[in-house]
Design a protein around this nucleic acid. Structure first.
Length: 222
DNA sequence: AAGGTAGGCAACCGCCACACG
DNA sequence: TCGTGTGGCGGTTGCCTACCT
């Protein structure tokens, strides 16, 4: 889609104002530059927490949720705008194969990208492309998710990676984490737990590649 | 040139989980 | 233990633009 022009922004603002007038309680619809500025200022001073407080401190007639969303998806520093690269697209495809529609987790692997952006990108680009390719190849068009066994296998591998990384950090916290995790019964793994990427570097997906290959529009499970 | 349509994106909605008193 | 407030998430909607007829 073409980038927003000044004219289109004005139109969006008008639309927002129209929505605002229909509901008097809180402002809804498109954000104005002034609102953005106010929000950014307050967050700079008070930090990005207590969104309801932020909304009132900024003098914005917006709900906290709206402020949070605006900050996370648009105003936050280091937001990457523009085209999704081939590498990023490949990551999205792989992670979606593993995790399904868990956009926040997927976004956590793509620095500067938001869950909303990835969700939109998936819905408008990738999902259609995959369905099309699967139709062409005669494969079952329904999305093939990784089986429980495969998830457990993945989880086991990911656990090792976690432990190695934590041990590398040679911190007390890391040692206790490793010990705690080693003692876990693999039969009782909370698979979701192992897909917390918050402690790993970006784009570190070698372990994913061990299990999945995307070839000619089809997912191959190794 | 005008109208219709599909694609893309920002924002909202509803639900859920968690923290706290 | 329960109720309330808050934040986070995925699904959905509505608007704008570009393209097609």
């Amino acid at each position: 889609m073409a980038p927003m022009t000044e004219e289109s922004i004005k139109r969006k603002v008008k639309a927002g104002e129209a929505m605002k007038s229909s509901k008097k309680e809180v402002n809804k619809g498109a954000w104005t530059a002034e609102e953005d500025h106010k929000l950014a200022e307050v967050i700079e001073v008070h930090g990005a927490k207590r969104w309801k407080t932020i909304a009132s401190k900024a003098g914005l007639n917006r709900c906290g949720k709206s402020c949070r969303l605006r900050w996370l998806n648009y105003l936050r520093p280091n937001i990457k705008r523009g085209n999704i690269s081939d590498q990023e697209e490949d990551l999205i495809l792989r992670l979606h194969k593993l995790l399904g529609n868990r956009w926040s987790l997927i976004a956590g692997r793509l620095p500067g990208r938001t869950d909303n952006e990835i969700k939109n990108y998936w819905n408008s680009h990738l999902s259609k492309r995959i369905i099309q390719k699967e139709k062409q190849s005669g494969a079952n068009p329904t999305r093939q998710m990784v089986s429980t066994e495969q998830k457990l296998s993945l989880a086991e591998h990911h656990q090792k990676v976690h432990i190695e990384m934590k041990e590398d950090s040679s911190s007390e916290e890391g040692a206790s984490f490793a010990s705690k995790e080693t003692n876990k019964n693999m039969n009782n793994i909370d698979v979701d737990d192992f897909f917390d990427f918050s402690n790993e570097g970006p784009l570190n997906l070698e372990w994913v590649s061990k299990f999945l290959d995307f070839d000619d529009g089809r997912w191959l499970i190794n």
